[in-house]
Protein backbone atom coordinates (compact mmCIF):
# COMPACT_ATOMS: atom_id res chain seq x y z
CA UNK A 1 0.00 0.00 0.00
CA UNK A 2 1.02 3.57 -0.62
CA UNK A 3 1.09 5.22 2.73
CA UNK A 4 3.54 3.79 5.25
CA UNK A 5 1.04 4.14 8.08
CA UNK A 6 -2.61 3.50 8.70
CA UNK A 7 -5.18 5.90 10.07
CA UNK A 8 -6.44 3.14 12.34
CA UNK A 9 -7.39 2.98 15.05
CA UNK A 10 -9.27 6.24 14.98
CA UNK A 11 -9.94 7.34 18.53
CA UNK A 12 -12.28 10.11 19.69
CA UNK A 13 -11.88 11.11 23.31
CA UNK A 14 -14.57 13.34 24.78
CA UNK A 15 -14.86 14.99 21.36
CA UNK A 16 -16.97 18.12 21.66
CA UNK A 17 -18.03 20.56 18.96
CA UNK A 18 -20.04 23.63 19.83
CA UNK A 19 -21.35 26.38 17.59
CA UNK A 20 -21.97 29.29 19.90
CA UNK A 21 -24.32 28.20 22.66
CA UNK A 22 -25.36 25.03 20.80
CA UNK A 23 -23.46 21.83 21.49
CA UNK A 24 -23.57 19.68 18.38
CA UNK A 25 -21.27 16.96 19.61
CA UNK A 26 -21.10 16.39 23.35
CA UNK A 27 -18.12 14.53 24.82
CA UNK A 28 -18.25 11.62 22.42
CA UNK A 29 -15.67 8.90 23.08
CA UNK A 30 -15.53 6.26 20.39
CA UNK A 31 -13.00 4.08 18.61
CA UNK A 32 -13.02 2.87 15.01
CA UNK A 33 -10.68 -0.01 14.24
CA UNK A 34 -10.24 -2.49 11.42
CA UNK A 35 -13.21 -4.75 11.05
CA UNK A 36 -16.78 -4.78 9.75
CA UNK A 37 -18.66 -1.52 9.15
CA UNK A 38 -19.70 0.75 11.99
CA UNK A 39 -23.20 2.16 11.56
CA UNK A 40 -24.06 5.50 13.11
CA UNK A 41 -27.73 5.82 13.84
CA UNK A 42 -29.89 8.41 15.49
CA UNK A 43 -32.66 10.86 14.73
CA UNK A 44 -32.10 13.87 12.49
CA UNK A 45 -29.90 16.43 14.19
CA UNK A 46 -28.37 13.93 16.55
CA UNK A 47 -24.84 14.79 15.36
CA UNK A 48 -24.10 11.95 12.92
CA UNK A 49 -22.88 14.17 10.09
CA UNK A 50 -20.83 16.32 12.44
CA UNK A 51 -19.20 13.25 13.92
CA UNK A 52 -18.27 11.98 10.44
CA UNK A 53 -16.80 15.31 9.40
CA UNK A 54 -14.81 15.59 12.62
CA UNK A 55 -13.53 12.05 12.18
CA UNK A 56 -12.53 12.93 8.61
CA UNK A 57 -10.60 15.87 10.03
CA UNK A 58 -12.73 18.52 8.31
CA UNK A 59 -14.09 20.08 11.50
CA UNK A 60 -11.92 21.19 14.39
CA UNK A 61 -13.00 20.05 17.85
CA UNK A 62 -14.04 22.63 20.41
CA UNK A 63 -12.60 20.37 23.09
CA UNK A 64 -11.56 16.78 23.48
CA UNK A 65 -9.18 14.88 21.29
CA UNK A 66 -9.10 12.90 18.11
CA UNK A 67 -6.26 10.74 16.87
CA UNK A 68 -5.64 8.71 13.77
CA UNK A 69 -3.35 5.71 14.20
CA UNK A 70 -2.01 7.35 17.35
CA UNK A 71 -1.30 10.74 15.71
CA UNK A 72 -3.27 13.90 16.35
CA UNK A 73 -2.66 15.50 13.01
CA UNK A 74 -2.43 12.68 10.53
CA UNK A 75 -2.45 13.63 6.89
CA UNK A 76 -5.90 12.80 5.49
CA UNK A 77 -4.39 10.81 2.62
CA UNK A 78 -5.74 7.50 3.90
CA UNK A 79 -9.21 8.76 4.79
CA UNK A 80 -12.09 9.39 2.45
CA UNK A 81 -15.65 10.62 2.81
CA UNK A 82 -18.76 10.59 0.67
CA UNK A 83 -21.13 13.39 1.60
CA UNK A 84 -24.85 12.93 1.70
CA UNK A 85 -25.13 15.07 -1.42
CA UNK A 86 -21.79 14.61 -3.15
CA UNK A 87 -20.71 17.34 -5.56
CA UNK A 88 -19.77 16.08 -8.98
CA UNK A 89 -17.05 18.06 -10.76
CA UNK A 90 -18.14 19.40 -14.14
CA UNK A 91 -16.30 16.74 -16.09
CA UNK A 92 -16.74 13.17 -17.19
CA UNK A 93 -17.25 10.34 -14.72
CA UNK A 94 -13.76 9.07 -15.51
CA UNK A 95 -12.28 12.53 -15.02
CA UNK A 96 -13.94 12.77 -11.60
CA UNK A 97 -12.11 9.63 -10.54
CA UNK A 98 -8.94 10.75 -12.28
CA UNK A 99 -9.11 13.98 -10.30
CA UNK A 100 -9.15 12.10 -7.01
CA UNK A 101 -6.37 9.83 -8.21
CA UNK A 102 -4.26 12.83 -9.17
CA UNK A 103 -4.52 14.17 -5.63
CA UNK A 104 -2.80 11.02 -4.41
CA UNK A 105 -1.23 9.09 -7.22
CA UNK A 106 -0.66 9.24 -10.92
CA UNK A 107 -3.98 8.98 -12.73
CA UNK A 108 -4.07 5.70 -14.48
CA UNK A 109 -6.60 4.69 -17.09
CA UNK A 110 -6.59 1.12 -15.88
CA UNK A 111 -7.22 2.12 -12.25
CA UNK A 112 -10.08 4.37 -13.36
CA UNK A 113 -11.69 1.48 -15.23
CA UNK A 114 -11.26 -0.80 -12.20
CA UNK A 115 -12.96 1.70 -9.94
CA UNK A 116 -15.79 2.31 -12.40
CA UNK A 117 -16.33 -1.44 -12.61
CA UNK A 118 -16.21 -1.76 -8.83
CA UNK A 119 -19.17 0.61 -8.47
CA UNK A 120 -21.04 -0.79 -11.43
CA UNK A 121 -20.37 2.10 -13.80
CA UNK A 122 -18.21 0.19 -16.26
CA UNK A 123 -18.37 1.73 -19.70
CA UNK A 124 -19.85 5.00 -18.43
CA UNK A 125 -16.57 6.78 -17.93
CA UNK A 126 -17.17 9.26 -20.74
CA UNK A 127 -20.57 10.35 -19.47
CA UNK A 128 -20.74 13.84 -17.94
CA UNK A 129 -20.80 13.25 -14.19
CA UNK A 130 -23.59 15.77 -13.63
CA UNK A 131 -25.81 14.01 -16.13
CA UNK A 132 -25.78 10.75 -14.14
CA UNK A 133 -28.80 9.72 -12.05
CA UNK A 134 -28.78 10.25 -8.29
CA UNK A 135 -27.85 6.64 -7.63
CA UNK A 136 -25.12 6.69 -10.27
CA UNK A 137 -23.71 9.91 -8.85
CA UNK A 138 -23.66 8.36 -5.38
CA UNK A 139 -21.75 5.36 -6.75
CA UNK A 140 -19.37 7.59 -8.66
CA UNK A 141 -18.73 9.50 -5.44
CA UNK A 142 -17.91 6.15 -3.81
CA UNK A 143 -15.48 5.34 -6.60
CA UNK A 144 -13.91 8.76 -6.22
CA UNK A 145 -13.49 8.19 -2.49
CA UNK A 146 -12.02 4.75 -3.08
CA UNK A 147 -9.53 6.23 -5.53
CA UNK A 148 -7.79 7.62 -2.48
CA UNK A 149 -7.15 4.05 -1.36
CA UNK A 150 -8.52 4.82 2.09
CA UNK A 151 -7.91 2.84 5.24
CA UNK A 152 -11.16 4.27 6.56
CA UNK A 153 -14.14 5.40 4.54
CA UNK A 154 -16.90 7.63 5.91
CA UNK A 155 -20.31 7.50 4.26
CA UNK A 156 -22.95 10.03 5.24
CA UNK A 157 -26.42 8.61 4.58
CA UNK A 158 -25.35 7.34 1.16
CA UNK A 159 -28.78 5.93 0.35
CA UNK A 160 -30.96 8.64 1.88
CA UNK A 161 -32.60 9.73 -1.35
CA UNK A 162 -32.28 6.58 -3.46
CA UNK A 163 -34.79 4.04 -4.69
CA UNK A 164 -34.59 0.43 -3.40
CA UNK A 165 -32.60 -0.86 -6.38
CA UNK A 166 -29.99 1.90 -6.07
CA UNK A 167 -29.91 1.36 -2.32
CA UNK A 168 -29.16 -2.30 -2.79
CA UNK A 169 -26.41 -1.49 -5.30
CA UNK A 170 -24.75 0.82 -2.76
CA UNK A 171 -25.06 -1.74 0.03
CA UNK A 172 -23.43 -4.38 -2.16
CA UNK A 173 -20.53 -2.06 -2.85
CA UNK A 174 -20.18 -1.27 0.84
CA UNK A 175 -20.01 -4.98 1.68
CA UNK A 176 -17.49 -5.52 -1.11
CA UNK A 177 -15.33 -2.62 0.06
CA UNK A 178 -15.48 -3.77 3.68
CA UNK A 179 -14.50 -7.26 2.59
CA UNK A 180 -11.37 -5.78 1.00
CA UNK A 181 -10.28 -4.55 4.39
CA UNK A 182 -11.46 -0.95 4.30
CA UNK A 183 -12.99 0.24 7.55
CA UNK A 184 -16.42 1.73 6.71
CA UNK A 185 -18.12 4.19 9.05
CA UNK A 186 -21.57 5.01 7.77
CA UNK A 187 -24.52 6.96 9.05
CA UNK A 188 -28.06 5.93 8.25
CA UNK A 189 -31.57 6.45 9.46
CA UNK A 190 -32.60 3.10 7.97
CA UNK A 191 -32.68 0.48 10.73
CA UNK A 192 -32.98 -2.36 8.22
CA UNK A 193 -29.79 -1.14 6.59
CA UNK A 194 -28.07 -0.99 9.95
CA UNK A 195 -29.11 -4.59 10.60
CA UNK A 196 -27.95 -5.73 7.16
CA UNK A 197 -24.57 -4.03 7.15
CA UNK A 198 -23.61 -3.30 10.70
CA UNK A 199 -20.75 -4.95 12.46
CA UNK A 200 -21.42 -2.59 15.29
CA UNK A 201 -23.94 0.17 15.82
CA UNK A 202 -23.51 3.50 17.57
CA UNK A 203 -26.59 5.46 18.59
CA UNK A 204 -26.28 9.23 18.85
CA UNK A 205 -28.90 11.41 20.46
CA UNK A 206 -28.65 15.16 20.90
CA UNK A 207 -24.92 15.04 20.27
CA UNK A 208 -24.21 12.39 22.84
CA UNK A 209 -23.19 8.79 22.29
CA UNK A 210 -26.00 6.80 23.91
CA UNK A 211 -25.07 3.26 23.11
CA UNK A 212 -22.37 1.44 21.13
CA UNK A 213 -22.66 -2.31 20.69
CA UNK A 214 -22.30 -5.12 18.16
CA UNK A 215 -25.25 -4.94 15.77
CA UNK A 216 -26.96 -8.15 16.91
CA UNK A 217 -26.70 -7.12 20.53
CA UNK A 218 -27.91 -3.58 19.82
CA UNK A 219 -31.07 -4.79 18.17
CA UNK A 220 -31.68 -7.85 20.39
CA UNK A 221 -30.92 -6.37 23.80
CA UNK A 222 -30.82 -2.58 23.73
CA UNK A 223 -29.52 -1.37 27.05
CA UNK A 224 -30.90 2.16 27.12
CA UNK A 225 -34.37 3.60 26.94
CA UNK A 226 -33.33 5.78 23.97
CA UNK A 227 -32.15 2.73 22.03
CA UNK A 228 -35.39 0.87 22.77
CA UNK A 229 -37.43 3.92 21.72
CA UNK A 230 -35.31 4.37 18.60
CA UNK A 231 -35.73 0.77 17.51
CA UNK A 232 -39.45 1.10 18.15
CA UNK A 233 -39.48 4.20 15.96
CA UNK A 234 -40.40 6.51 18.80
CA UNK A 235 -37.19 8.46 19.30
CA UNK A 236 -37.99 11.35 17.02
CA UNK A 237 -35.84 14.24 18.15
Amino acid sequence: MRAPFSDLPLVLTEATIAAGPVTILDKVSLMFDAGPPTLLVGPNGSGKTTLLRAAMGLLPLTSGRISWGGRDNASPARRAIVFQRPVMLRRSAAANIGYALAATDTPHAQRIDELLALVGLAGMGNRPARRLSGGEQQRLALARALARDPAILFLDEPTASLDPASTKAIEDIVRDVAARGVKVVMSTHDLGQARRLGGDVALLHRGRLIEHAPAEEFFAQPRTKEARDFIAGELLV
Binding site: L58, A80, R148
Partner: peptide, 22 residues
Amino acid sequence: YRDELAALGVGPLGRVATLVWD
Protein backbone atom coordinates in the same frame (compact mmCIF):
# COMPACT_ATOMS: atom_id res chain seq x y z
CA TYR B 1 -17.19 22.64 -3.75
CA ARG B 2 -15.52 23.57 -0.49
CA ASP B 3 -16.18 20.38 1.48
CA GLU B 4 -15.56 18.09 -1.45
CA LEU B 5 -12.20 19.65 -2.27
CA ALA B 6 -11.17 19.67 1.36
CA ALA B 7 -12.10 16.00 1.63
CA LEU B 8 -10.01 15.26 -1.46
CA GLY B 9 -7.08 17.03 0.18
CA VAL B 10 -6.67 19.56 -2.66
CA GLY B 11 -4.15 22.33 -1.95
CA PRO B 12 -4.76 26.07 -2.52
CA LEU B 13 -3.39 26.19 -6.06
CA GLY B 14 -5.26 23.04 -7.00
CA ARG B 15 -8.44 24.61 -5.68
CA VAL B 16 -8.00 27.71 -7.83
CA ALA B 17 -7.31 25.61 -10.90
CA THR B 18 -10.24 23.28 -10.24
CA LEU B 19 -12.72 26.06 -9.60
CA VAL B 20 -11.64 28.08 -12.63
CA TRP B 21 -11.87 25.01 -14.83
CA ASP B 22 -15.25 23.96 -13.48
